[in-house]
Nucleic acid binder design. Structure first.
Lengths: 164, 164
DNA sequence: CCAAATAAGTCAATATGGCTGACATAAATT
DNA sequence: AATTTATGTCAGCCATATTGACTTATTTGG
């Protein structure tokens, strides 16, 4: 891989690293490349990361309510509105009134939307596959457990009303 | 932890997940919470993520050139200029002319800048510590190897001129 | 020595994706 | 009937990224 952490000419060299500086940087670079894959594909459709998130979670939770999507993404309805409208206008997502509660506009991907969502999943899965391949089968479950444990209330984050 | 992936009422339930959909979502949520820690601290100083990155890498590579920072962050100098100027104006970073090449403005953190940078590292390290604690000592190195393997040329990404 | 390349900075305009505040409408609930 | 909920929308602001053009120093190469 690239030596992303290298300094330029005059560098004294990285100061002695306390804590997990190395992992912090690896997380930064790996996330950048991870989302970069999707960014490139999305750009061909005139979409950005915001569209990606909406499309992804609607694909994963067919029939979900707008409110649920807002809670999941933790953005405002104004922010969601812009990208959701585009996805609906361009035929990637449909909104159908709730049968029981007709105020709701339940969200579902169209075949076109589902196809793009699945392409994005496949693209990012390839990178994950590649990375998992550098681990022994016994080590692979550790990645999932690490990521799960990275989620949730740090001291700063409020306990966060459960979503489900 | 929170059940972030849950859909709302009407959901049929997640469609059968091909690839690593679950890991894709875990990466999304874990990164969000990971950077969220820093965001909260930075907000108290009137800084954002862009400032964080600059401060961090200058702290890690004292005396680095502006060009090196641009290559590392992969942003334009216009984007860098704005946040760098703020960090310099507010006494977090100093620029000193290169002794050999006086066109250069070598970047170094001030004591104040270094302190903030180290606080951010400590904050994020705590979350990482917590997450690593859910793994056996034998499993922990797997995380680093996974992250390293996640970096670099996916099919889309150009080979990227080495930096060091 | 002079021309060209390099390091850095700046101005102006544009795009994306967040945000707040204020309202509007329809439908459900009390 | 009054209130609450689900959704949408208008208007404006902020942070961060972009491109393109241009300036100023300074170094380097012919």
């Amino acid at each position: 891989m690239r030596d992303e952490t290298a300094a330029g000419a005059g560098a004294t060299g990285p100061a002695d690293a306390p804590g997990h500086v190395d992992l912090i940087e690896l997380i930064f670079f790996s996330y950048r490349d991870f989302v970069g894959d999707a960014d490139q594909l999305l750009a061909r459709f005139g979409f950005g990361r915001a569209h990606h998130r909406v499309l992804h979670f609607v694909e994963r939770n067919p029939g979900m309510r707008v409110t649920d999507l807002l809670d999941l993404l933790r953005i405002t309805k104004q922010s969601l509105g812009r990208v959701l409208k585009q996805l609906v206008d361009e035929g990637y997502i449909v909104q159908t009134p709730g049968e029981v509660d007709r105020r709701q506009r339940l969200l579902t991907t169209t075949p076109r939307g589902s196809r793009l969502a699945r392409e994005l999943i496949a693209l990012q899965s390839r990178r994950i596959d590649h990375a998992l391949a550098s681990l022994s089968p016994a080590e692979q479950p550790a990645v999932r457990r690490f990521l799960e444990a990275m989620i949730g209330g740090g001291e700063g984050a409020p306990p966060a009303d459960d979503i489900a």
